[in-house]
Amino acid sequence: MVRSVPSRIALYVAALIISIYSAFPIYWMVVSSTRAPQSLLRETSLVPGPFTLEYYSNLLELTDYPSQLLNSVIVAFSVVAITMVFSVMIAYAVTRQRIRGKKLIVGAMLYAYMFPPLLLAIPIYTIFTKIGLGDTLLSLIVAHLTLTLPLGVWFLWGFFKNMPFELEEAAMVDGCTRLGAFLRIVLPLSLPGLITVAIFSFLLSWTDYTFALIMIGSDANKTVPVGLASMIGSFDLRWGEIMAGSTLIALPLFGAFALLSQYFIQGMSAGAVKG
């Protein structure tokens, strides 16, 4: 499409404003987390500095942050792994097998989204304490799966549905088993979908506050978002440490998006919209 010069300028200006609007808080977070304490609250300058790593070392040496980070990593990676395996299997089964009422199955999985997380979290918490799993990382993982699994199944369902079955048949004629055809043809072709599901479930689990707040009571089992929040007000308000902690939470997300954004965009446009 060819645009006239004024409309192109308008487009760039709009894009610039949107980018600044969404990127500024991130910039401010990173800058504040490295600004020396004496200037942090007094000199609100856009330029970074004076530079310090004090908050980071405080956070990692004097607080529970490292063990909370480890908790977060365990929970998020378990959620991603379990979501991937099960949503691939369920989505493939409902697309390729003739199952009675499969529309209903997929639909029912999405019902979980009709309720706010809090509404689900409280009964889940009650059940877990009854069976002796209260205040464990496992309970948090299961709670996160109630959100990530339906999303993954629904998303991959759209992906597999759009993939002609003839491709697998061709592979089977060419010498693959059913499983081989799936692993060699379907999975590589679904890579954008798989990556999108992985990022989404990581994001959901990594940044979750509601479930973690309800399911976890002890300091030892807290994940970073809850741990960080409990710093506010528990002694004095340590803005520098909070900014440093937030930066550390956001860092892996930046990394993942930077590496995988092209698949992510492909996945978003191929699976969900057309599916």
Partner: peptide, 13 residues
């Protein structure tokens, strides 16, 4: 056996 499908079914990747 070898088969040729109506929509070719070539592996796109």
């Amino acid at each position: 056996i070898a088969m040729v499908f109506q929509n070719y079914a070539l592996y796109p990747h």
